[in-house]
């Protein structure tokens, strides 16, 4: 038996040494990475020029090799995720001419896990055909969370009119990060900021998205809808999000329904909320209606501590 073990170990050692040597050689040839970065920067400049060109003279961006086409995809993704409200139609010709959609879906098909999620994320920046949308719909039910959410985002980006239907049809709850990623699409001006129907909906994902929109865009006229959610919603997570959003907007919190919801919170939740209000800059007077006399002692200590008053002695 021991001989067998020794042989196995020898074989494993030999394999590992070979793999390490190969990897090292590849790493030493990492000049290719710099080359890829340079190529990407080159295409970013070209894409920006194309989007800025107001004369609308057809300008061709040509990527000949596969690595150039990948660099072009990444460049489009970078530019589009950092610009607001750009008209993407000048890019459509480039995407068609270089066969970027076909390239991306080939990659999506032959990759798995995070690589697949990466290609799906890139595909959110190009206009997709119907065939590709069908493929994405299938992937939006994947067991892998990263793939699932990347395909949902890609679907929303390619067909913004259907965004609400698609989100409401999801059979799972979106995480705060997923919602933030959808919000980034909103920031790019891809989907409209219609928060009211979202807040009125009974769907968890839509309500959370609506609340996130209100918070991210500082829509303080939405406080009536938030109050409605606080008084009528049965989901604790949504109520928590609504109360915190209301306080991040700096709205008054003294209403009876908020007091009632707060009375149902655990001691640690109330304390955490108290700290949150202190950092948001609420006054002692504003908090007096929300917390008991004993809790107010804690709240006062917080508000009157380092966050508010300066002692005028400078140690410099």
């Amino acid at each position: 038996m021991i001989i067998l073990y020794t042989y196995i170990f020898i074989i494993l050692v030999a394999i590992l040494v070979t793999v390490i040597m190969t990897q090292r050689t590849q790493n030493s040839r990492r000049i290719t990475t710099d080359k890829a970065t340079r190529r990407r920067v080159f295409y970013i400049r070209q894409v920006v020029n194309l989007l800025q060109d107001e004369s609308r003279i057809p300008m061709n961006i040509i990527a000949r090799t596969r690595s150039e086409r990948i660099a072009l995809c990444e460049a489009i993704h970078i530019v589009r995720s950092h610009t607001y409200g750009t008209d993407s139609s000048p890019l459509n010709q480039t995407i068609r001419d270089n066969g970027l959609e076909r390239l991306l879906f080939q990659r999506i098909r032959y990759s798995t896990g995070l690589r697949r999620a990466h290609w799906l994320t890139l595909s959110s920046c190009i206009t997709l055909g119907e065939k590709s949308i069908h493929k994405l719909e299938r992937l939006s039910n994947s067991r892998n969370h990263a793939i699932r959410i990347a395909s949902v985002i890609s679907l929303i980006a390619s067909d913004p009119q259907m965004a609400i239907q698609r989100i409401s049809a999801l059979r799972y709850r979106l995480s705060p990060l997923d919602i933030s990623r959808i919000i980034s699409l909103l920031r790019r001006g891809i989907i409209p900021i219609a928060y009211e129907p979202l807040l009125q909906s009974n769907n968890y994902n839509l309500q959370m998205l609506g609340i996130a929109i209100v918070r991210n865009f500082g829509i303080d006229i939405a406080d009536k809808r938030l109050h409605d959610i606080i008084s009528s919603c049965n989901d604790k997570a949504i109520v928590r999000e609504a109360i915190l959003t209301l306080s991040s907007l700096g709205r008054p919190l003294g209403r009876a329904k908020i007091r009632y919801r707060m009375s149902n919170m655990s001691i640690s939740e109330r304390k955490s909320f108290c700290r949150y209000l202190a950092t948001e800059g609420y006054s002692v007077q504003a908090l007096r209606t929300l917390f008991s006399e004993k809790e107010m002692h804690y709240a006062e200590a917080l508000i009157k501590s380092y966050k508010r008053d300066l002692v005028c002695r400078q140690y410099t």
Binding site: A301, K304, R308, L310, V311, Y315
Partner: peptide, 19 residues
Amino acid sequence: YSIVKQYGLIRVNTIVSDE
């Protein structure tokens, strides 16, 4: 004091809770 100087820190009120 090097940290105080580097970041221009000033002393502020200290009412710490008794948790």
